[in-house]
Structure formats: structure tokens, C-alpha cells
Amino acid sequence: MRYKAILSWTATILWMATIFLLSHQPANDSSKLSLDLLDFFMQSLSALAPQVEMHADALHTVVRKGAHFGAYFILGILMLNGLRQVGGRRVKSAVLALCFCFLYAVTDEIHQLFIPGRSGQFTDVLIDTAGAAAGIGIFLLVLYLFRKNVKQSKLS
């Protein structure tokens, strides 16, 4: 295996471990983390736009669900990159990456059933999978645009 593949898979596994560790937090710890992030966000937004009215409960939900989307957005990119580094074709690798991210999201929600105060939710699996799909889609779009640009510059 080449060093790029090893590096890609190491990053993927470390990110999966990060997701696991965050999911392993009891509900109180997880809620405190997201509330601290929300507090920072609300203070920053108040400083930048004091006229904007904010509702903490609604924003807390957005922060928590956004964290799911963002974590799996990154996982989708890392997974697709890892598969491509070991010779996977674009479409096949994208489908495999998405399937793997979906399965990891399912196992993550099952894992949360055993954590105090946490619950597994199928809606979170859907949000996670949507995040992975968005990450994979953007990765493929950037790759396409990059290759198109390289081809055009070779023709010039």
C-alpha cells in the first residue's frame, strides 16, 4: 500500500474513532458540549448582529443535528478518498463510501442505546447519511472541476 493510502485510511479511522468517542459520552456531557458551542455561537452572533433575534432551544437542535451532518460530511470525504487511494473507480467508490457511512451511522445509533441518557434515532442515521452524501458529492464535484481545469490547461 502506498503512503497516500496509508495516510488516507489512518485519517478515516481516526475520524471514526472521534465519532465513536463523541457518541460514547453520556447525555449530560454531550449536551454540555453542544450547549457550550451554542453559547459561543450566540455570543459571536450577538456581537456581529445584535439586531438578530435568537431562540436557544431551536438553535440547540440545529447545533446538535448540524454536528451529525458535519461529522458524516467529513467521514464521507475521508472514506471516498481512502477508497480511491486503493484504486477504486469513481462511481463504485462513491456508492461503497456512502453505504459504509450509512452502516457506520446505524452502528453508531445502536451504540448510543447503551450509553446513559442517550438514545438511538433513525432520523440521526438519515441526517448522518445525508451529510456523507453531501461530502461525497462535493468531493466528486471538486475532483471533476479540477480534472476539467487540468485538461483545459494542457490543451492551451
Rank of each mutant, 00 (worst) to 15 (best):
L155Y: 02
D128R: 05
F41V: 02
I110T: 11
A17E: 00
D29F: 03
G76C: 12
G76A: 12
H60F: 13
F102W: 14
L22V: 02
G87V: 01
A67W: 00
G88D: 02
D108K: 09
S31V: 09
A49Q: 12
W15F: 10
D29A: 12
D124S: 02
L59A: 00
G137W: 11
A94L: 11
A56F: 10
G137C: 07
F73D: 04
C99R: 11
G76R: 12
A47T: 02
F69K: 01
A11C: 14
D128V: 06
L45F: 07
Y72W: 13
K4Q: 14
W15A: 09
I19Q: 04
R84C: 03
A134R: 05
L80G: 04
A56T: 09
G82P: 03
G88Q: 03
L14E: 06
A105V: 12
I77V: 15
L96C: 14
Y72S: 08
C101P: 06
F20N: 06
L113M: 15
P116Y: 07
R89P: 00
R84N: 06
V106I: 15
L96G: 02
M42I: 06
R118V: 02
C101F: 06
S34W: 01
M42R: 05
F100L: 15
C101W: 03
I77L: 14
S46N: 14
H68A: 10
Y72D: 03
S8R: 09
D36N: 12
S153Y: 06
I127D: 01
T61F: 07
L75S: 06
Y104S: 11
S46L: 13
D124I: 01
Q121S: 11
L98W: 15
Q152M: 09
G70H: 04
L37I: 06
A94H: 05
M16W: 10
S31F: 06
H24C: 01
Y3W: 15
S44G: 14
Y104C: 14
P50Q: 05
A97M: 12
S119I: 08
V95M: 13
D39W: 02
G137V: 03
L143Q: 08
L59K: 01
L113R: 14
F20E: 05
Y104D: 05
A11I: 09
S119Y: 09
H68K: 13
D29W: 00
L22P: 00
L96S: 08
L59E: 02
L155T: 05
K4F: 13
L145D: 01
T12N: 11
K154T: 00
I110D: 10
T107C: 13
H55T: 04
R89W: 09
V106T: 10
V52L: 15
L48N: 02
E109P: 14
G87S: 02
G66M: 11
T107A: 14
N149T: 12
I136S: 08
L7D: 01
A71F: 14
R89Y: 10
F20S: 07
V62A: 13
D39R: 07
T61A: 05
L75P: 01
